[in-house]
Design a protein around this nucleic acid. Sequence first.
DNA 1: TATGAATGAGGCTTCATTCAT
DNA 2: CATGAATGAAGCCTCATTCAT
Lengths: 203, 203, 203, 203
Amino acid sequence: MTERSGRQDGRRPANDGPRAAARNRAALVAAAREVFAEQGLAAPLSAIARRAGVGQGVLYRHFPDRAAAVAAVLEGNVRQIERAADEADATFAGVLGVLTWHLTESAGFIGLLAAERPGDRSGIRAHSLALSVRVQRALRRHLPDAHPLSGGEDLGLSVAMVSAAVIGATREEREHRALAAWRLLGVEVGPVRTCEGPEEHDV
Amino acid sequence: MTERSGRQDGRRPANDGPRAAARNRAALVAAAREVFAEQGLAAPLSAIARRAGVGQGVLYRHFPDRAAAVAAVLEGNVRQIERAADEADATFAGVLGVLTWHLTESAGFIGLLAAERPGDRSGIRAHSLALSVRVQRALRRHLPDAHPLSGGEDLGLSVAMVSAAVIGATREEREHRALAAWRLLGVEVGPVRTCEGPEEHDV
Amino acid sequence: MTERSGRQDGRRPANDGPRAAARNRAALVAAAREVFAEQGLAAPLSAIARRAGVGQGVLYRHFPDRAAAVAAVLEGNVRQIERAADEADATFAGVLGVLTWHLTESAGFIGLLAAERPGDRSGIRAHSLALSVRVQRALRRHLPDAHPLSGGEDLGLSVAMVSAAVIGATREEREHRALAAWRLLGVEVGPVRTCEGPEEHDV
Amino acid sequence: MTERSGRQDGRRPANDGPRAAARNRAALVAAAREVFAEQGLAAPLSAIARRAGVGQGVLYRHFPDRAAAVAAVLEGNVRQIERAADEADATFAGVLGVLTWHLTESAGFIGLLAAERPGDRSGIRAHSLALSVRVQRALRRHLPDAHPLSGGEDLGLSVAMVSAAVIGATREEREHRALAAWRLLGVEVGPVRTCEGPEEHDV
DNA sequence: TATGAATGAGGCTTCATTCAT
DNA sequence: CATGAATGAAGCCTCATTCAT
């Protein structure tokens, strides 16, 4: 942000120390989000480094494995949902709207909640589960007792089902499909919106 | 390129001749079903050949590419659903029960209706779509006009959503989850059963 | 020719014994000629069997290896050149015309005299050499003492050079190029023609 | 697809870092030159990597496909010929002498001008053509108007013919044969020599 | 004797991961 | 700290060759 860095002359990139590290991390997460969205979660990691404009080594410094990169990407989505749930006037339908926005926006996020990854030994599954739980927790805080999804695993099941509904759709169709899916489940959804905040630098 | 020796020493594993062809094909389909179920549709094809106990070449003779192997696996499932729909006393709930059985039984089948395969260049997508359409057609023949799923794409969407609900579950949980999913959608399902027929030899 | 064979009804091909063997051999040689011409000498042997309409086993019965198939193809060309040289009124220029015809006609023949096959362990090289020698012998019988090519290895060299001149050309250009090459060598060539004879059945 | 382990046990052969890049490239080009010369342009690429003492991956980093490897090998030869043609006192016979030296020296170079590559889908053909054109252009700049090769395609044809003349010969015979071939064409050739320059490091 | 399936070695290519500079 | 080359295992696919029927 302070623009004090970058290539000083024509030579090697200046070593800005930790400052650069943060910038690189942000670039990597952004690149990973794009690459995973475009090519799926099995995309070559080198593609991420390339798109971020950093060497492979840096990628490994920040993310020891694929699961870490996936988690970093999804972390941002989940945090926004949590933030939406933290807002003073949050409602179940409102949080659902934010969730739906992420489902619509980030193809990578789709993978989190609906991905078929049997036999995955890379730990993506475990990470996904953890993130999934956080999403459910955020939602459940606003779930009325009499809500049709209030029973047992119905909430998690529903989120997975809606996620699946948008798989394979183009970005244009996703919102429509997600809303149709919620409608089939008889669930009311608030406005589909993001939840921008002050700490967007690495999400 | 000109001289592709082969083994000089003489011995060579059994060659059961053409008789083995049918047996091998069946073994390959079975192996593919298991491997796809365990490791997903991106599993190494060589794993299928290995599990079937045949050489790589045989795999390629029977299935020129991954899409063909996938199609062979799913074809059986789809055909049974179609057969269930053809029965004289077929009902929507009944066919749904058969569909649910396959969802429960064959983890590979799951991939058909809910798989995330962005960037898939192998034609699996196209095949899946075709098979998906056949399933929907079979169902729609018995869909009452007043049914909650009778509108537009609701049927396809629902099937995809239920499929997603069972993803990642163990075989034991799948039936329970699938039924819970249908319940959330407000859809009644008949007995979860298979539809065995006389031509099971290669399905 | 007597048309007593072929499939009797709709079942397996009748086993006509030696009669069928000769027919198969001819079909294989013809197929090999076409395949080698189209795809080069490294073409898959299975393509030859397929085009000949026989099983792989038959191919191996007639030609134990690739070199044998190549030799069989070229044998026909060489024999015609020898026959041209045997004619009562044969002249050097005349035989050269026949040679040029084969160069033009049979892309496979091109390989014989000009092919780059270093490191070829399959014996094609040895066969080629032998056939090449026969061609030179046929020519030399009519070579006037005062001819520019009468010295040492000049004859063989020239044939190789002209062969090279037509490599890579389409069938249409080959005659033109071959004649241009002979002209550059200062050698007069008779009419470019074949030398059909009574024993065409397996050439 | 997701988990491509690598060796667990720890050790891993030396990695000399980027320093090795230039060295490796040179080794690869040298190895390719030898392998192509010995086994023809269809030689296994893995043989090149093996002879250069590098992994398969390195080969692919430097040469994305076979055509690139071939081009790298031949580029050096062609450049020297062009340099010979650029010398102040260059003559047609002189450049021909350098060309002949390369024909004699580098069996791989032979492939460039005389190779039979039907069914070549790898683009080697196109590259070869381009290089061939450069050679001809270098020669033509010094070709006297009254020269016997000054007409149309005679120059290219002649080079191809002479190239063919040395095919299959041992390195010792090649110079003799090439000169004999030029003599048969009635063309005078200057001293057979190389054209070393300052930038030999990777040719 | 002919068929055509099976075998499996080996070529090609892609990445995950390490590490000298 | 960052770079980016090297490594090599593993997946894909293609045939040459054999052999039961």
